[in-house]
Protein backbone atom coordinates (compact mmCIF):
# COMPACT_ATOMS: atom_id res chain seq x y z
CA UNK A 1 0.00 0.00 0.00
CA UNK A 2 2.78 2.38 0.84
CA UNK A 3 4.78 3.63 -2.08
CA UNK A 4 8.32 3.94 -0.76
CA UNK A 5 9.42 6.39 -3.42
CA UNK A 6 6.84 8.87 -2.26
CA UNK A 7 7.88 8.62 1.36
CA UNK A 8 5.54 8.32 4.28
CA UNK A 9 3.15 11.06 5.29
CA UNK A 10 2.95 12.06 8.90
CA UNK A 11 0.02 14.40 9.35
CA UNK A 12 -0.73 16.51 12.37
CA UNK A 13 -4.46 16.89 12.77
CA UNK A 14 -5.66 19.92 14.67
CA UNK A 15 -8.26 19.94 17.37
CA UNK A 16 -10.42 22.26 15.27
CA UNK A 17 -10.52 19.79 12.39
CA UNK A 18 -11.39 16.91 14.71
CA UNK A 19 -14.10 18.90 16.40
CA UNK A 20 -15.86 19.48 13.08
CA UNK A 21 -16.52 15.77 12.78
CA UNK A 22 -19.11 13.62 14.46
CA UNK A 23 -17.65 10.51 16.11
CA UNK A 24 -18.52 8.33 13.11
CA UNK A 25 -17.02 10.79 10.65
CA UNK A 26 -13.91 11.10 12.76
CA UNK A 27 -13.33 7.35 12.91
CA UNK A 28 -13.99 7.01 9.20
CA UNK A 29 -11.54 9.79 8.41
CA UNK A 30 -8.86 8.25 10.61
CA UNK A 31 -9.27 4.73 9.24
CA UNK A 32 -9.21 5.94 5.64
CA UNK A 33 -6.00 7.87 6.19
CA UNK A 34 -4.36 4.93 7.92
CA UNK A 35 -5.41 2.49 5.25
CA UNK A 36 -3.75 4.81 2.76
CA UNK A 37 -0.51 4.36 4.68
CA UNK A 38 -0.49 7.63 6.59
CA UNK A 39 0.57 8.22 10.16
CA UNK A 40 -1.57 10.71 12.08
CA UNK A 41 -0.88 12.70 15.19
CA UNK A 42 -4.13 13.93 16.65
CA UNK A 43 -3.93 17.06 18.75
CA UNK A 44 -7.01 15.98 20.59
CA UNK A 45 -7.09 12.22 20.87
CA UNK A 46 -10.05 9.92 21.03
CA UNK A 47 -12.17 9.22 24.05
CA UNK A 48 -11.90 5.68 25.37
CA UNK A 49 -15.31 4.88 23.94
CA UNK A 50 -14.14 6.13 20.53
CA UNK A 51 -10.92 4.13 20.90
CA UNK A 52 -12.94 0.96 21.47
CA UNK A 53 -15.10 1.69 18.39
CA UNK A 54 -11.99 2.34 16.34
CA UNK A 55 -10.52 -1.03 17.35
CA UNK A 56 -13.82 -2.67 16.47
CA UNK A 57 -13.96 -1.00 13.04
CA UNK A 58 -10.31 -1.80 12.41
CA UNK A 59 -11.05 -5.48 12.98
CA UNK A 60 -13.87 -5.30 10.45
CA UNK A 61 -11.55 -3.80 7.84
CA UNK A 62 -8.50 -6.05 8.22
CA UNK A 63 -7.48 -7.51 4.88
CA UNK A 64 -4.96 -10.22 5.44
CA UNK A 65 -2.35 -9.21 2.88
CA UNK A 66 -2.81 -5.46 2.73
CA UNK A 67 -4.08 -4.11 6.05
CA UNK A 68 -3.15 -5.88 9.28
CA UNK A 69 -4.50 -3.27 11.66
CA UNK A 70 -3.41 -0.18 13.48
CA UNK A 71 -0.88 0.94 16.00
CA UNK A 72 -2.29 3.56 18.35
CA UNK A 73 -0.78 5.17 21.39
CA UNK A 74 -2.22 8.02 23.33
CA UNK A 75 -2.93 9.22 26.77
CA UNK A 76 -6.15 8.71 28.60
CA UNK A 77 -8.68 11.38 29.35
CA UNK A 78 -7.41 14.02 31.68
CA UNK A 79 -9.05 13.85 35.03
CA UNK A 80 -11.26 16.82 35.51
CA UNK A 81 -10.26 18.86 38.52
CA UNK A 82 -12.74 19.59 41.27
CA UNK A 83 -13.24 23.11 39.96
CA UNK A 84 -13.74 21.92 36.38
CA UNK A 85 -16.37 19.47 37.59
CA UNK A 86 -18.24 22.27 39.34
CA UNK A 87 -18.06 24.33 36.17
CA UNK A 88 -19.37 21.37 34.21
CA UNK A 89 -16.30 21.03 32.00
CA UNK A 90 -15.99 17.65 30.32
CA UNK A 91 -12.89 15.52 30.35
CA UNK A 92 -10.70 15.97 27.31
CA UNK A 93 -8.86 13.15 25.58
CA UNK A 94 -5.23 13.93 24.88
CA UNK A 95 -2.72 13.66 22.08
CA UNK A 96 -2.67 10.40 20.15
CA UNK A 97 -0.39 8.95 17.49
CA UNK A 98 -1.95 6.44 15.19
CA UNK A 99 -0.89 4.63 12.03
CA UNK A 100 -0.80 1.38 10.08
CA UNK A 101 0.57 -1.51 12.14
CA UNK A 102 2.98 -2.52 9.38
CA UNK A 103 4.64 0.90 9.52
CA UNK A 104 4.40 2.40 12.97
CA UNK A 105 6.04 0.73 15.93
CA UNK A 106 5.79 1.98 19.46
CA UNK A 107 9.19 1.82 21.08
CA UNK A 108 8.35 3.03 24.52
CA UNK A 109 5.57 4.77 26.30
CA UNK A 110 5.41 6.27 29.74
CA UNK A 111 3.38 9.01 31.30
CA UNK A 112 5.50 11.74 29.69
CA UNK A 113 6.53 10.54 26.27
CA UNK A 114 5.46 8.18 23.52
CA UNK A 115 8.39 7.03 21.41
CA UNK A 116 7.60 5.56 18.03
CA UNK A 117 9.50 4.49 14.97
CA UNK A 118 8.36 4.28 11.38
CA UNK A 119 9.76 1.19 9.72
CA UNK A 120 8.68 0.87 6.08
CA UNK A 121 8.46 -2.57 4.61
CA UNK A 122 7.87 -4.36 7.86
CA UNK A 123 4.91 -6.61 8.39
CA UNK A 124 2.29 -7.23 5.73
CA UNK A 125 2.83 -5.68 2.32
Amino acid sequence: MVNKDKGISVNLVSRQKLEEFSTDEKLEFILNEIRNGKVLVLENGLTSVEQASLIQQTMEKIEQDTFIGIEMEGYGEEKASFLQKILGKIKKPRMTVIGPADLLKTVRKDSNMIQTRIIPGRGAR
Binding site: V49, Q51, M72, G76, K109, D110
Partner: peptide, 17 residues
Protein backbone atom coordinates in the same frame (compact mmCIF):
# COMPACT_ATOMS: atom_id res chain seq x y z
CA UNK B 1 5.58 -6.95 29.81
CA UNK B 2 5.14 -3.20 29.48
CA UNK B 3 1.72 -2.38 30.98
CA UNK B 4 1.23 0.94 29.18
CA UNK B 5 -0.39 -0.51 26.09
CA UNK B 6 -3.26 1.01 24.18
CA UNK B 7 -5.45 -2.01 24.84
CA UNK B 8 -5.05 -1.71 28.61
CA UNK B 9 -5.60 2.04 28.51
CA UNK B 10 -8.71 1.68 26.33
CA UNK B 11 -10.29 -1.00 28.52
CA UNK B 12 -9.65 0.93 31.73
CA UNK B 13 -10.88 4.16 30.15
CA UNK B 14 -14.17 2.58 29.08
CA UNK B 15 -14.84 1.26 32.57
CA UNK B 16 -13.89 4.53 34.22
CA UNK B 17 -16.22 6.36 31.88
Amino acid sequence: QDPFTQVNVTIIGNLEA
